[in-house]
Nucleic acid binder design. Structure first.
Length: 177
DNA sequence: CGCATTTGACCAGCGC
DNA sequence: GCGCTGGTCAAATGCG
């Protein structure tokens, strides 16, 4: 399931003042050359409302011992996942600041890929939007960003016209769903 | 001092 | 049924 049908034209993007912001000043380089929206096909299929996408998988009382009583054996019909929207971005940095604040919560090495995949989550309270960033082992210059869910709050940091682009992204998402 | 990042462990789903 | 891979959590650490 690591085969996104990347079949979108990589044109456009007049780009202007691409001002990215990173927590790390060393990453202040913005090298976006083109964005390629990719449709990430889910096996789940149907999509429910995002409003109730609670991550109820919090049943691990303790790590090691964890005799536990509450077993996460209730997830049944809630298996439906939200649609994901993948974007292929040509960038030197994988940290693309789209205006939201993300908190990294994991990093895994993917097979068939020399580069690890990073998992981010929107730090906004109540916003369960996730995103994962991975780099193509084939093209080190290509970064694939996969968004999961939609933000239910305005952008925190105003961006020049980057917001416009973000807006386009959302339009695309709507179109795909 | 507060918050974001790091990193290892754990878990669930899927494939063989 | 076992093993592998992907995904997430949580404690510790670092940085602003």
């Amino acid at each position: 399931m690591h085969n996104y049908p990347t079949q979108f034209p990589t044109q456009q993007s007049s780009s202007s003042s691409t001002s990215f912001r990173s927590r790390h000043p060393s990453h202040r380089s913005s090298n976006m050359i083109g964005i390629t929206p990719v449709f990430g096909s889910l096996r789940g299929g149907s999509s429910s409302g995002f409003s109730g996408l609670n991550d109820e998988m919090r049943a691990r009382t303790s790590h090691g011992d964890a005799k536990n009583e509450i077993k996460p054996g209730k997830k049944k019909e809630n298996k439906v996942r939200k649609p994901r929207y993948a974007f292929q971005t040509r960038s030197q940095v994988d940290i693309l600041d789209d205006g939201y604040r993300w908190r990294k919560y994991g990093q895994k090495t993917v097979k068939n890929n020399k580069f690890p995949r990073s998992y981010y989550r929107c730090t906004h309270q109540g916003c369960n939007v996730k995103k994962q960033v991975q780099r193509l082992s084939r093209d080190e210059s290509v970064v694939v960003t996969t968004y999961e869910g939609v933000h239910s709050h305005p952008i925190e940091k105003p961006n020049d016209n980057f917001e416009d682009m973000l807006n386009q992204m959302q339009i695309y998402s709507n179109f795909w769903s």
